[in-house]
Write a protein that binds this DNA or RNA. Structure first.
Length: 211
DNA sequence: CTCACGATCGTCT
DNA sequence: GACGATCGTGAGT
């Protein structure tokens, strides 16, 4: 029996609520029939035309960011230096808000992800540019839906964070109140966070789950 | 065409 | 924590 609708496209939820609820969900990518996946442990909310840190600030709309203006569930990928950044649009068409996926805890295909990165352990997926490379995410995925293959989020395979921490977004200097806004969400005690890891918990910050 | 600038990463201190 | 690498985008001439 299927649930009715993913929270990802629920119009009653704010971008902040979606950023929180994404923690623990399974991000999945299939390349040439091979799956890699990981549970999301770090997100950031970019809350629209008033958010000076967002690409869509002041209703800015350039060719690379048209996906931001598409409906909830649309994937927005952009290049930062040599890296790809993965975002999921959260609101209705014409309301450019999104969540940046910043880190995952590997689930399936860990060895393949380490090979793609030429890095072991936490270094494979502990950052927005790292996880896209590890999972083989490419510009082909841009403007596709996060609800269907080959790049999708499985909200049924969700783990439950023991505790969620809020902090300032990474790499947002000189943006007034938006520099200090607490719009970054992390699973407390998880070792795969991109920065400012606190003490790592033995359960990686997940509630014990009975299957 | 030119040029300034990053929602980063890796390395070094 | 600081800094250099490195390159596509977008604004300006």
């Amino acid at each position: 029996m299927k649930n009715s609708m993913s929270f990802l496209t629920d119009p009653t939820l704010s971008t902040v609520e979606i950023a929180e609820q994404l923690l623990g969900c399974l991000l999945v990518k299939e390349v040439d029939g091979v799956i890699t996946s990981g549970h999301i442990v770090e997100t950031e909310a970019y809350v629209g035309i008033e958010d000076q840190a967002s690409h869509s600030y002041n209703s800015r709309k350039t060719p690379r960011m048209t996906a931001m203006y598409e409906p909830a569930g649309t994937i927005y990928i952009y290049k930062m230096h040599t890296h790809l950044m993965l975002n999921v649009v959260t609101k209705d068409k014409g309301d450019p808000q999104a969540v940046l996926i910043r880190a995952i805890e590997p689930h399936a295909g860990t060895q393949l992800m380490e090979e793609r990165r030429q890095k072991q352990g936490v270094e494979a997926t502990s950052g927005p540019g790292k996880l896209t490379k590890a999972m083989g995410i490419a510009m082909d995925d841009h403007e596709t839906s996060i609800l269907k293959p080959s790049l999708y989020i499985d909200t049924h395979e969700k783990k439950s964070p023991v505790s969620i921490e809020r902090s300032k977004r990474i790499g947002i200097p000189n943006k007034g109140e938006w520099t200090d806004a607490l719009l970054r969400f992390t699973v407390k005690g998880n070792p795969y966070l991109s920065r400012k890891k606190g003490q790592v918990r033995v359960d990686n910050g997940w509630d014990a789950m009975l299957d």
